[in-house]
Amino acid sequence: MPDSNTTYFTNPSTFILLGIPGLERAHVWISIPFCTMYAIAILGNFTILFIVKRERSLHKPMYYFLCMLAITELSMSKSILPKMLSILWFNSREIDFIACLIQMYFIHCFATMESGIFLAMAFDRYVAICHPLRHSTILTNRVVVKIGLALVLRGCLLVLPYPLLASRWPYCKTNIIPHTYCKHISVVNLACADIRLSTNYSLSVTVFTPGMNVFFIAVSYIPILRAIFSLPTKDSRLKTFGTCSSHLCAIFTSYITFVFSFVMHRFDNTMPLYLLILMANVYLLVPSMIHPIIYGVRTKQIRDRLLSLFTPRRT
């Protein structure tokens, strides 16, 4: 006979997001750095979009891809931070079942798109450095649009099974999610069913999608570095490599936090839960804040245009 003290859910109407279990008393203080990151991410990415839109000399494939990255990261932050801050500030923990699945979908979808955009940027650098005379004919506006649409479609389709499978599982005993957002694995772990299909599929997407992107990025940089080192002078080598430095810094920022978070979750039995949750948020939010800073500081065209906005013109 079933235990009369246990409550079972077939499809709960709401989930309860606990925030950061173990650090409830520090929720308000924890919210300060996350709110600061959110504000910097919004300001930085909107600044990138504004500068590229206004400066016609920046209407090039490299900056179009940068705008795609900025839009993706704005969308990523918007998917996570508002609900997380409502939990940390107002203890507003309830989230509708369907809203939870939608949040899950968009978080993982935008993360997949971001990884693909880095690959598109690597392709742009390859064509610009290895085939500079053909750059404008290979990467036309139509080709850039097609690449962007392909990245969006890939992200949408790869992640679509996440909420579809999660909505099919029966949920039992609890509807409490020990997290600040509806992370896929945190949701499906509440199901009272064999969820190996969900977990195996999500693990495959999590590992192989960025893994394949990193592989092709590395392959593209082999001829790029070969072309750079074949240049006749040190100044020309440094100048050409400088056009890749922002891209490489952005990649390292994203993938270092991704690898660190992934490795920590492989040892989740020995790690404090609050540390895993904090790292999961850092992995998604820090790159959104750092990337516009990297491109603003290391890209001369953007840096000069940004300085001109704050420097009064001499009459």
Rank of each mutant, 00 (worst) to 15 (best):
L164P: 04
T6M: 00
T180E: 08
C35S: 14
I177Y: 00
I217K: 03
F123S: 04
R266V: 15
L275C: 10
F90D: 11
M84R: 02
R154I: 13
A191K: 10
N189W: 06
N11F: 06
E114F: 01
L66I: 02
F97D: 05
V144N: 11
I195G: 01
Y63T: 06
E114L: 07
K83I: 15
A122C: 09
N5L: 07
I107D: 02
M289F: 07
K60V: 01
Y63A: 05
N281R: 08
I195V: 15
V205M: 06
W29V: 03
S230K: 13
K183N: 06
F267P: 05
G211K: 14
M271H: 03
I177C: 04
L151I: 10
L197W: 03
P292A: 01
I228C: 11
V52L: 09
L74P: 09
L133Y: 04
L164M: 09
H291S: 06
T140N: 02
R298S: 11
P21F: 08
N175F: 08
A250V: 08
Y274A: 14
G44I: 02
I71E: 00
A166V: 09
I147D: 09
C244L: 13
P82E: 12
K300I: 10
S4C: 13
L275S: 05
R134T: 13
T206R: 15
A120N: 12
C100M: 13
C249E: 03
L203G: 13
T270L: 07
R305H: 03
V159D: 11
Y126W: 11
A39K: 00
N281L: 07
I40D: 00
M212K: 06
P21C: 04
P163G: 06
K60M: 13
S75V: 14
L18Y: 03
L149Y: 10
Y162V: 08
S13D: 15
L157C: 12
L276M: 01
L307N: 08
Y63D: 04
H291M: 11
V297N: 00
I16G: 07
A111L: 12
F241S: 14
Y105W: 14
D268S: 12
Y274T: 05
P223D: 03
M279D: 14
A250S: 12
R168I: 01
P33R: 12
P61Q: 00
V207I: 14
P61D: 11
L119N: 02
P163F: 15
Y181H: 11
R168P: 08
V159L: 13
A128T: 13
S86F: 06
R56M: 04
H247M: 12
S246R: 06
N175K: 06
N200Y: 13
M264C: 13
L164N: 06
H247S: 09
N45K: 01
T209W: 12
N189K: 11
P12Y: 01
R303L: 02
V159I: 10
T6D: 13
C244I: 15
W169F: 14
A41P: 14
T7Y: 09
G242T: 12
